[in-house]
């Protein structure tokens, strides 16, 4: 990469302003909520909460086959902030994003994204909402038969009737913002993992969405592309006034970037709050997860019978 990571000046200053504004809002809000969020007392409060949160998940339950993935989950994702959802693997974090995108239907409960209940939306409503959200998949999910340029142009071609020169301008702008303007002719197979993820990010924001969802953005990244990604997510969130939702199990990186944290395990929220508060949580499960301890409430051993009995059984 010949150019250093240098967003232009106006973007930075507007980002600072935006941060200041967000900080103000943050002061007004109640900082922590209990795991079982209290029902808003008055209508006014409810409307207020509605306006602050881009995504509201209420009493969500989801089953896959006979396995319960989520049981009565209630979460909210404030507008304009980076909210992270963490938890051990296998807790269905990606499933949560797919539920928000309306790709899966919950068993019960509601998911309100930008005022639309995606669990009950019609097909056209759903596709309209999806135009307002971008999603960065774990693998990048670039279309392997299209070049980098065409990948980023894809949503524009699908949803707009823009002339070719305008599409070119937008695509180059978005590619520039992730630092890959020079890689536009490459095919996805020629990109490194980190570059593919950045291209996917450019594609996710090409329609100027209001919300971007990141599915495990830090998995398998070298330290350089990790910090590039961290900086990009933060910067895009602040300059474009996005609502960002990150699903991850990489504790350190997520703590660095998130404004608000949810920790889920066994289908429910076990801890939430700002990073510092979650770090100091007295829940043993949260502590085990945050510190990465091998044994604790999540046992090291898969459920089994008594060790001694098991060994001796072979002797009979």
């Amino acid at each position: 990469m010949s150019e250093s990571f240098q967003p232009n000046q106006s973007l930075v200053s507007s980002a600072n302003l935006e941060n200041a504004r967000l900080n103000l809002i943050r002061e007004d809000q109640p900082r922590i909520r209990d795991a079982a969020a209290p029902e808003p007392a008055t209508l006014n409060q409810w409307i207020e909460a509605e306006a602050e949160n881009y995504v509201e998940i209420q009493n969500l339950s989801f089953q896959r086959g006979s396995r319960i993935i989520y049981d009565d989950l209630t979460m909210s994702f404030p507008k304009g902030k980076v909210t992270a959802v963490m938890g051990p693997s296998g807790t269905g974090k990606t499933t949560l994003l797919k539920l928000m995108g309306g790709q899966l239907q919950p068993t019960s409960g509601s998911i309100i994204v930008a005022g639309v209940d995606v669990a009950r939306a019609s097909r056209t409503e759903l596709f309209d909402v999806r135009k307002r959200m971008g999603m960065l998949f774990q693998s990048g999910a670039l279309f392997s038969d299209l070049s980098v340029y065409e990948n980023v142009a894809f949503p524009l071609r699908a949803h707009t009737e823009l002339p070719e020169d305008m599409i070119r301008d937008i695509v180059l702008m978005k590619l520039h913002s992730v630092g890959l303007r020079g890689a536009r002719e490459l095919m996805p197979s020629e990109l490194s993992g980190g570059m593919a993820r950045r291209v996917a990010l450019a594609r996710a924001i090409v329609l100027d969405p209001e919300m971007v969802m990141y599915d495990e953005p830090f998995t398998g990244q070298d330290p350089i592309s990790m910090s590039v990604l961290l900086q990009l997510i933060r910067l895009l969130n602040d300059t474009l006034e996005l609502t960002s939702i990150i699903v991850s199990h990489d504790v350190q990186e997520t703590l660095d970037i998130a404004d608000y944290l949810y920790i889920i395990a066994d289908g429910r929220v076990i801890g939430q709050g700002e990073p510092k508060e979650v770090m100091n949580s007295d829940s043993a499960l949260v502590q085990q997860f945050m510190l990465g301890l091998p044994d604790g409430p999540v046992p090291f051993h898969f459920p089994s019978q008594n060790y001694r009995d098991d060994i001796l059984e072979g002797r009979h």
Partner: peptide, 18 residues
């Protein structure tokens, strides 16, 4: 199948293209 496994189909759906 590969497009499905690499989430290309899912991402296309999220872009709002069937």
């Amino acid at each position: 199948g590969l497009m499905k496994a690499t989430e290309q189909l899912a991402s296309m759906e999220m872009i709002g293209v069937d």
